[in-house]
Design a protein around this nucleic acid. Structure first.
Lengths: 353, 353
DNA sequence: TTGAAAGCGGTACCAT
DNA sequence: ATGGTACCGCTTTCAA
């Protein structure tokens, strides 16, 4: 029993009676071939169970596949990891002639238009984008797509645009998981407060809704009150201090955005640290001591590294294999506590193919 | 500015004044080359920053890389996923001429010797093994390694053997995470019971120790009592019923092995379901309703799919790139609750490179 | 010990 | 519209 090696275009050429050049034309729907022969060749290819060899095709690829990316520098802890994931994935695809082209803006939401305008001039094959806003960049995204440069967003979606896919953690799920955890932590009893950047930001709003949905399912007691801090450290601190003063019976705080250190400081300064259950979002170095001291009891990790990594993979497969990714690739939100945080910080990872 | 394409062996040949054949000999330490020229070539290669192109080398590889595996059929829910991970990884490496060769035993720990004896006859390049025992198979593993067939264990380790690597979730960490979670669920108050297969099994023992270590750190109150059920459903049920009767004030149960459904039934039959906090191990279809009903509050997922997947990747990289994996590749234990279980059941996954 | 050349499975270009 | 062929970067004979 021969291991019946898989058929190559040469085999198809032989079987169909055409040359490999023609077979290639048929297989890739190139021009310069009659419909008749294309059909015939496609039929034999199918009957022989032909599958292209990506390795061979990569080897012979003339122009490199340039994958561009636009990342913010701030917040370092998050976007640095996204960027590492991006670079690692590209590095892994190096032998497939994939090249990175990374641009940066200083802060999320600032100067993206200009950077994108610049990128539109470049010869790129795909784009990974961290959109500073869920719709403001739609026109730009669409211009890339019209130039047949597929765009994959990361960290959030741009649902109104024609982006190919979005790789991120569903904020609703994120909040839902936090809510369930909080309910279990408190045995279903509150009161609980929610700290968020701004309810006008869709992702923040979704997290709050998700939290409330599972909180109301798993817990009784008063509806959690929501406090907006505009992503400002000072305000986060003050709001927390204020809430604690007014509600000394507060049992839990859910911090839906990245301001947890300020909240923790307020807790410590008010003497509530460790007594109030705190569930936060994301994970970065500054949070470590608070997890160790038990000020933060758990945090929901969004795996920025993998977001960057998977965005690249999705683009690559789309570009060279024609595999269309799902419109939304939701990554798993992960519950991180003291005993498993070492797995996620300083965050290292590895996949390979 | 040319994108200065990376050097190939041809470039090295040109630069060093030897032929590509000789360059290849030098690069791979093959015989039939003088030490002098090898050194010279290696030097120029280094100075030019040469890195081999895995795609090209895969394309030209004569014999396929055969990765063998030996999996148990039982417990389906776990080893089926390991197997899927194995197959998916191999499929992804298909174009690199990687072929699978899978053998099975009916039950973990039964007939492995015979199956391995058989595998020793085959021409294989690497082996993924689920060892039914942490030392009993050492002699076999060593025989493979002596034939220069690297072995990677999955789901547990065989530390006394010369296995190349072990991919699994550190059982101690696993228990530690469960213990921390339980402590938070109960506000640090017990009593708590631990259900385990047998303390004679190292992995079970480790889970218990891990649980106790974090329980004592985060909680006060009595030391949890440990009950062995010999992996027997009936015993698991009876033990649970018994414990509940004797300790109606029981607050939590940690099920360190796969017998959670029996424990859940006992809880329901005794009317304690939902009142007692239950943290289990692994995740399979039968557990879903218990998570939904709130009988199980959380479970620690060990990602069998990824265990199988990563074992393949480690073997491949070792065999074709010479990358030596760490002796132990600990995967992250994951906290799964009702609102995130959909991500892990029926368990789907994907990586790519 | 070393060099030359034939592929591996595709792609792309040049003839026809 | 089709066939032929050089070539991608490396491995592996086969000569020299």
């Amino acid at each position: 029993m021969t291991p019946k090696k898989r058929p190559t275009i040469k085999d198809i050429a032989l079987a169909s009676g055409f040359s490999i050049g023609t077979v290639d034309r048929a297989l890739h729907g190139r021009k310069g071939i009659s419909a008749r022969t294309r059909e015939k060749i496609l039929a034999t290819a199918r009957s022989m169970g032909y599958e292209p060899n990506r390795v061979a095709s990569a080897l012979t690829r003339k122009k490199p596949v340039v994958l561009a990316a636009l990342f913010p520098r701030e917040l370092h802890y998050f976007y640095d990891d996204v960027r590492r994931g991006f670079y690692d994935a590209v590095a892994q695809l190096r032998d497939f002639k994939v090249l990175p082209l990374v641009r940066e803006v200083e802060t999320l939401g600032k100067g993206e238009e200009e950077a994108l305008e610049n990128l539109l001039e470049e010869r790129i094959d795909g784009l990974v984008l961290v959109p500073g806003h869920r719709s403001r960049l739609n026109a730009f995204i669409n211009r890339f797509v019209e130039k047949s440069v597929p765009v994959v967003t990361v960290s959030t979606d741009a649902p109104g645009s024609s982006r190919l896919s979005a790789v991120y953690v569903d904020p609703w799920k994120n909040g839902e998981l936090a809510g369930e955890l909080m309910a279990h932590f408190l045995g279903g009893k509150g009161p609980v407060a929610i700290m968020v950047g701004s309810l006008d930001i869709e992702d923040h709003f979704q997290k709050v809704q998700g939290f409330l949905s599972s909180w109301t399912r798993f817990a009784r007691g008063p509806e959690p009150e929501v406090f907006e801090n505009e992503e400002d450290e000072q305000r986060a601190y003050e709001t927390t201090a204020c809430v604690l003063e007014e509600h000394p019976d507060l049992q839990g705080i859910y911090v839906a955005t990245a301001n947890s250190p300020a909240v923790c400081r307020a807790l410590e300064d008010s003497g509530f640290a460790g007594r109030v259950r705190v569930i936060t979002t994301d994970l970065f170095g500054e949070m470590r001591p608070y997890l160790e001291k038990g000020v933060i009891h758990a945090t929901i990790f969004q795996n920025p590294y993998r977001q960057g990594f998977e965005a690249v993979i999705a683009l690559f497969r789309f570009l060279v294999e024609g595999v269309v990714p799902p419109p939304c690739r939701y990554l798993e939100p992960v519950v991180v506590m003291r005993s498993n945080m070492e797995f996620y910080i300083p965050s290292k990872e590895e996949e390979k193919g």
